[in-house]
Amino acid sequence: MARIQVAMAVTIDGFLPDKDHTLAEWVRTSSNGFPRWRDACSYPLFPKYSLLDLIRDKGHSDDTFTYYAEIMDKESTELCRGLFLYHMVDELILYLLPLTTSRGIHVMRHVSPGHWKLHGIRHYNNGVCRMIYRKA
């Protein structure tokens, strides 16, 4: 069965950062950020992708196939909500930005309760920390 990866950049307090912030730009463009996962995936997911089709297709794909979703704005947050609502996410790639904003889209409230195992962690010179969690 295929796996579903979700990558998101969040502030320490769980909000999506302003897209114009330099650290958010770094995550979107750096080879250590979203492009790393986008280039390696089998199929990128996009906002308004049919979750029913995804449920069907995920079961018909082998375990080397990877669906990938980037969560970075209001539309993609709805995709995130649906993926977590139906417990479809197998791997969460979390870029933690050393900021607090207390405003905007609180994306972490869409992450459904569950048990995750830390698979990898990396700290960058700009203060960003990348953590990779997999379903336990």
Results as ranks from 00 to 15, higher is better:
129 C>L: 15
70 E>Q: 13
9 A>I: 06
89 V>K: 02
36 R>W: 06
11 T>I: 08
66 T>F: 09
15 F>K: 02
49 Y>V: 14
133 Y>P: 00
7 A>C: 11
96 L>R: 13
127 G>K: 09
17 P>Q: 09
124 Y>N: 01
104 G>I: 07
54 L>K: 06
112 S>N: 12
6 V>H: 02
95 Y>F: 15
45 L>K: 08
97 L>A: 00
87 H>E: 15
73 D>K: 08
48 K>Y: 11
58 K>P: 04
17 P>R: 03
95 Y>L: 02
56 R>Q: 12
55 I>Q: 12
83 L>F: 05
76 S>C: 01
112 S>A: 15
86 Y>K: 12
62 D>I: 02
19 K>F: 10
11 T>G: 08
66 T>Y: 10
33 G>P: 02
75 E>Q: 11
5 Q>C: 00
126 N>T: 07
70 E>A: 10
14 G>C: 09
91 E>N: 00
27 V>I: 11
98 P>D: 09
11 T>D: 06
136 A>M: 12
78 E>D: 14
54 L>T: 01
31 S>C: 00
14 G>E: 01
2 A>K: 07
73 D>E: 13
13 D>C: 05
66 T>C: 01
136 A>K: 14
109 R>A: 12
111 V>W: 06
30 S>K: 09
63 D>T: 11
43 Y>P: 07
134 R>T: 13
37 W>D: 06
50 S>G: 11
81 R>F: 12
39 D>V: 07
133 Y>N: 00
34 F>C: 04
3 R>Q: 13
120 G>T: 10
23 L>N: 01
122 R>Q: 14
39 D>P: 06
82 G>M: 03
102 S>K: 14
122 R>V: 12
28 R>Y: 11
83 L>T: 05
78 E>Y: 02
91 E>I: 11
123 H>E: 15
87 H>I: 01
38 R>N: 11
33 G>L: 07
108 M>T: 15
8 M>E: 04
136 A>Y: 10
16 L>I: 05
96 L>M: 14
12 I>E: 13
51 L>D: 02
12 I>D: 03
82 G>S: 10
131 M>W: 00
128 V>W: 00
56 R>S: 14
106 H>I: 02
5 Q>R: 12
81 R>W: 01
65 F>K: 00
95 Y>Q: 10
61 S>A: 15
114 G>D: 05
71 I>W: 05
8 M>L: 15
33 G>C: 02
73 D>P: 03
67 Y>H: 07
64 T>Y: 10
22 T>Q: 14
64 T>V: 07
52 L>V: 12
20 D>G: 10
109 R>Y: 05
37 W>C: 01
20 D>C: 06
27 V>T: 08
37 W>Y: 15
111 V>Q: 00
39 D>I: 05
131 M>C: 14
71 I>N: 08
121 I>H: 05
8 M>K: 08
33 G>R: 09
